[in-house]
Design a protein around this nucleic acid. Structure first.
Lengths: 210, 210
DNA sequence: GTCTATATCCAGATAGAC
DNA sequence: GTCTATCTGGATATAGAC
């Protein structure tokens, strides 16, 4: 009879985790529908047919819910990084990363807002969640470094360009692709700037041949 | 005695407008201190030593206050446009406009947020205020067209680049100039892309001379 | 034009019974 | 683990006396 106890605890824990996940799923649905600041514990409880107070069994506060969403968003980004096609072509790498971020933004604007804009008052990610964000950052940093892009200012320019495309897409054409379709052009512009233009490369080749 | 009445009405109206402006000044101070969503009619009234209900004499709703801030922000932008140095040099024009927008953002982040991000739930500018925003847009559009930049996609790329620099500056280095100091480089990158590189120009000159 | 009083609704969070 | 009951505080807005 002693041996049954641990299994019972496991089942309870599993149930607990399952409920927690249901709450998080409902939270995603809520921010998806009404924006990041539309998250409300009362409404969340209502959607799940429970009393608001019961949520505190699973999350210590509303910001704890945000923290789980924040962590999940960063894990999703890391997954997408892991699935990137491997290549040595700098322009292809830049294009892949830009598409990764901008589609991450358009897929779920609220998630992008949570991770990259500072729009939830008083929310600070926990150390564990923040570590995931740092991992995302260094992942991007080293992906660019691998193709010869290791200058800090260039990196900042790149993130500004990608963030600009993403935020304009969300703000001005949330359901279209007006800025999404500028990605290839943006990559060409940026790559020409930091690596030299294809034209310049051709000129250099001519000089070498001469 | 009849002639005194209009003057009394004028004085009353002037007093009314003065109080209205005091409220707006306090509102600016509030969003400056606590962010755009920190605006609260209760707190506003408290700062002005009045009851919250009295504010309704001056503004029909909280969003009416936001609307006045929105309009004032756009008027300030138009003023800055009017004060731009006149020049035919495309790169100089691009640089001036970029600095105009990014410093407009860093001078008062909440104002930039109100005008260019969609971060106040349920706020829609009134037709009159929106008209000012449209005027700002067309002002930027025609300033670029005047130096030969009239392609829609190029314009979108430009706004994305400038918006990206501004938003990254606000989000990642609000008190510094990490992205501000990239403006010249960004202008060069963009201008090279749409007008051709200086290198390419030199090559063309060589060809013409040869 | 400003006040008191009030309506209505929302929020996050805690204590303690069961 | 979930509930009832409650605390505390916030919000926007309206009615009507003065």
């Amino acid at each position: 009879m002693h041996s049954a106890e641990p299994r019972r605890r496991d089942r309870r824990r599993a149930r607990h985790e399952a409920t927690k996940q249901e709450i998080l799923d409902a939270a995603w649905a809520m921010v998806r529908a009404g924006g990041l600041n539309a998250l409300s514990l009362r409404a969340l409880a209502h959607d799940l047919d429970m009393e608001p107070q019961s949520l505190y069994t699973y999350f210590a506060s509303k910001n704890a819910v945000y923290d789980h969403l924040f962590a999940a968003g960063n894990r999703e980004l890391l997954d997408r990084f892991a699935r990137l096609e491997q290549t040595d072509d700098p322009r292809q790498v830049l294009g892949e990363i830009a598409r990764l971020f901008v589609s991450f933004a358009t897929d779920e604007p609220a998630r992008y807002e949570l991770l990259f804009m500072r729009t939830v008052p008083d929310f600070e990610p926990s150390p564990g969640s923040y570590a995931l964000a740092v991992e995302v950052f260094s992942r991007a940093r080293s992906a660019l470094a691998a193709v010869g892009l290791d200058d800090d200012a260039d990196f900042d320019m790149w993130t500004a360009l990608v963030a600009g495309l993403a935020s304009q897409q969300l703000a001005n054409d949330p359901d279209g692709d007006r800025y999404l379709r500028l990605i290839d052009d943006a990559v060409a512009m940026f790559a020409d700037h930091v690596f030299g233009t294809q034209a310049a490369v051709n000129v250099n080749r001519s000089l070498i041949r001469a």
